[in-house]
Design a protein around this nucleic acid. Structure first.
Lengths: 145, 145
DNA sequence: TGCAATTAAATTGTAAACGATTTAAAGTTA
DNA sequence: TAACTTTAAATCGTTTACAATTTAATTGCA
């Protein structure tokens, strides 16, 4: 690559990732609107559908989001009746997040979303898996600090 | 893939893209802090360093950002003295964006960022290019609506 | 035990990000 | 030419996102 091309927008890996992220999340909207939730709510529920209850900090780590982001998100989800937040008995600093019945029931309605979204990416399941694995590998090898 | 695995967080392509995007942008911070700009300012400058002046709408299209996002971004960059915004003579609805001398000069200071960032991804140039091209292809084939 | 250090979540301030609406200019047509 | 439509950017409201700080609980240790 020519030296002067390094600053071209279309050569930036980050911009490609960043734009794909936003555009894919935009495609979730019609599906998530039906459930009355946002993408952030959705990924929060994905974690909780796997692990319920879960400590606040663990949830944040899974989602790569910090307390400044998650505290208001979880409060709004609590307000919607999707989950409850409670202090842990053995350590009053920690918060435990649990799904409500409503939060658990949403899982059924969400069950068809992943395949419909895969369809919208126009990728074969194999291509999607390969790309996802590449990104996971990249994520792992990024410097933490 | 087992049917019940579709809703697992780690199987979601979107979440992998979304998380990579945020983590890579976080790695830009030390570099951009030195220039006193944000990542959004940076990609705006990347476009302007290639095309100057440029119509507002064209800039938005390049960046996949809408007027609601870009109007305040460009106003803040104007305030910093990086660019100027002016109505077009032949069509008073349109805004033309031009770099200032300061905005042009930043390009030199930014010249080393892309290679330093590539280094931080721990990817070979070939791997990075392949991944970027895959994402561009995906972006192109996503439904517009 | 008592106090410093650490840890966890909340809070604060700033900057995106985007859908929906508004305002104003330009184009279209009856 | 006047009314309607379209287009462009700005504005508004809501939700993320994160760095930095604060508050409160716990842990370590002198």
């Amino acid at each position: 690559m020519n030296n002067k091309d390094y600053l071209k927008l279309d050569n930036q890996l980050c911009f490609a990732v960043y734009t794909c992220s936003k555009e894919i999340i935009r495609l979730y909207r019609p599906f998530l609107d039906k459930l009355g939730i946002t993408y952030t709510h959705y990924i929060t529920l994905l974690v909780l559908w796997e692990t319920d209850p879960i400590p606040f900090k663990k949830l944040c780590n899974h989602l790569y989001l910090d307390s400044g982001t998650m505290t208001p998100v979880l409060k709004s989800m609590e307000k919607k009746g999707l989950l409850t937040r409670s202090r842990m008995e053995n350590d009053e600093r920690q918060i435990s997040i649990s799904l409500t019945q409503l939060g658990r029931e949403l899982k059924e309605q969400a069950a068809t979303i992943p395949l419909q979204m895969l369809c919208r990416t126009q990728l074969s399941p194999e291509e999607a898996n390969t790309l996802r694995d590449t990104l996971h590998r990249l994520l792992k090898q990024l410097p933490q600090a």
